[in-house]
Write a protein that binds this DNA or RNA. Structure first.
Lengths: 190, 190
DNA sequence: ATCGGGAGAGAACGAGCGTTCTCCCTCGTT
DNA sequence: AACGAGGGAGAACGCTCGTTCTCTCCCGAT
């Protein structure tokens, strides 16, 4: 019974996503992914010719999921300031997910950034994408210096992600939102 | 020629500190530490009976160094608000160190937090220590809600650390400082 | 019915790791 | 001088991992 290529690929990616995120990339062997995906080792290597490529695909998928989740929260608001605050609603929702373990890119960067230039690059790109999104939001909200406000919001967000991951509490999202409100009060025209 | 125990231990810790921080914990083998410390493998295992113990010692040492560096920057100021801002001077100085690779605790947590409860615990403790220090500073500065201000400052700091590590630029320290000034302006009595 | 290609299961391989063991040398004590 | 404890160098061991190979079976084409 041959499973078609597209669904096999999806099963592998699903398993990789779950295991890599849950336990860390280096702690998960290709055989664990084979077992979790139900695909043969041979097929696995046909779909992803090396673990490195699978890691890249995992991170690419994470980036896609992440952007989509963020976008959905942004779409819930129309007023510019509300849209900025929606970023922190997104974080809050993310942190309370049962399997939340921090940012896959920060984690992978800590694990492999020094060893794999590709992983370091993907992490950089992911964060640059977030920065761009926040800059757009700040600009639309009428910030005098959108780059500055965006950078401040990034710091709050990234800080909330790592603090929440390490402490195991979702509270940093609320704190970040509070601080964002205060900063917007100063950085946006009344 | 027998080196005395204390200096041998120090040489091992120095080597472990450099290599673990530079390349990540899992990427560095015990043999690499032996080679870098100039100590025999036998002695190494007499000093640290397992790699786990060595990792613990590495993190404990990092925590000590970190607290000391922070304290030195705090000591450079006496006025309460200046002392809070000194935290960001500390970050700025840290980020511009040639070998800066982010926070050892965040990195180790990303690598091993899901696998080693001890590492997760040490990361938690380190961050709790930082939180305590900031709470004291906020209280001394007269914040109406010292916990809140401390949490906001933590988010900025942690965000700056990871953003600076991934982007490779020290600029997040300046941004964090800017944001801290704005937040203090709102959260501290005039 | 037969043949061939592809897929699955898992053994095999080579490398690297953490840890232990062996062997030999040194050196302080008697 | 003889001896024994201890230390250095590195081989060895057992395990895991990424990757490849072998063998077998199934299934569609002829």
């Amino acid at each position: 019974m041959a499973i078609d290529t597209a669904t096999a690929q999806q099963q592998v990616l699903d398993a990789a996503d779950r295991l890599f995120y849950e336990r860390g990339v280096q702690a998960v062997g290709m055989d664990a992914i084979r077992a979790a995906s139900g695909v043969s080792l041979k097929r696995l290597y046909q779909l992803f010719p090396s673990k490195d490529k699978l890691i890249e695909a995992y991170l690419a998928g994470r980036n896609r999921q992440w952007e989509q989740m963020l976008q959905e929260h942004l779409d819930a608001a129309t007023e510019p300031r509300e849209r900025i605050l929606a970023v922190f609603d997104f974080l809050s929702a993310w942190f309370t997910q049962r399997d939340f373990r921090g940012c896959a890119f920060i984690n992978s960067f800590g694990e492999l950034g020094a060893i794999s230039p590709r992983v370091a690059e993907l992490a950089k790109q992911h964060k640059a994408g977030f920065r761009q999104a926040l800059t757009d939001l700040a600009q639309t909200a009428g910030a005098a210096d959108p780059d500055q406000l965006a950078d401040h919001l990034i710091l709050l967000s990234e800080g909330a992600i790592t603090t929440s991951a390490i402490s195991g509490s979702p509270k940093p999202a609320e704190r970040a939102r509070e601080a964002a409100v205060l900063l917007m009060r100063v950085s946006l025209p009344t």
